[in-house]
């Protein structure tokens, strides 16, 4: 069932990136190290997008998550006094997070093992779609009156609201 080829090797490698990065994020005491592990993890996700033939999303993943959000997180860490040299663990609710994470894992694993999504499900064997969507298709769909033009504009509005809210919160000293 599992064949060893370049794609499966890449899949395993990216999985290791994601899992190793995620493990690093939750185990390290140093917040900057945590941010770097997060970058590794996000990079693995970008690799998954490439394997799924979604190069646009892969580029977006690197551009937005590694280039912007990781930087934002590091800035936020540096803004907070004495957060970087923190040595004591302050995650007292780790058991709750562990519980939620474990339940989610069981739920997803059940979805794959039980005949819902996996190889034994009703969808197995059927071609997902014979049309490969390109970035051009995405662009046309985004501004098509019958398709996604409303979400497109709402996204812009949402981002505007996000920026205004962030500025109001960050500058409440005035």
């Amino acid at each position: 069932m599992i064949t060893i080829n370049a794609q499966s090797i890449a899949f395993i490698l990216f999985s290791l990136f994601i899992l190793g990065g995620g493990l690093g994020v939750v185990t390290t005491r140093n917040l900057i190290h945590g941010a770097l592990y997060l970058i590794l993890s996000l990079f693995g996700v970008a690799g998954f997008f490439v394997l799924l033939s979604a190069p646009f999303l892969a580029a977006v993943q690197v551009l937005v998550y590694i280039g912007a959000i990781a930087i934002l997180i590091i800035f936020a860490v540096m803004l907070t006094r004495s957060m970087t040299s923190l040595t004591e663990a302050f995650n007292r609710q780790w058991w709750l997070a562990g519980l939620v994470g474990g339940l989610l894992f069981i739920f997803l694993a059940a979805g794959i093992i039980l005949p819902v999504w996996g190889a034994s499900s009703a969808y197995a064997g059927q071609p997902v779609s014979d049309v490969v969507a390109t970035t051009t298709d995405l662009g046309i769909a985004l501004v098509d009156g019958n398709q996604y033009v409303l979400p497109f504009e709402v996204a812009s509005l949402l981002l505007t609201a996000a920026m205004i809210g962030a500025i109001v919160i960050a500058r409440d000293d005035e």
Binding site: P55, A59, V60, L63, I66, G67, I71
Partner: peptide, 20 residues
């Protein structure tokens, strides 16, 4: 690459990480 421009911008944005 079909997303060559975004590749350039994305790889370029890793430059900020190196500085940090």
């Amino acid at each position: 690459l079909s997303v060559g421009i975004l590749y350039f911008v994305g790889v370029g944005s890793i430059g900020a990480v190196k500085v940090m």
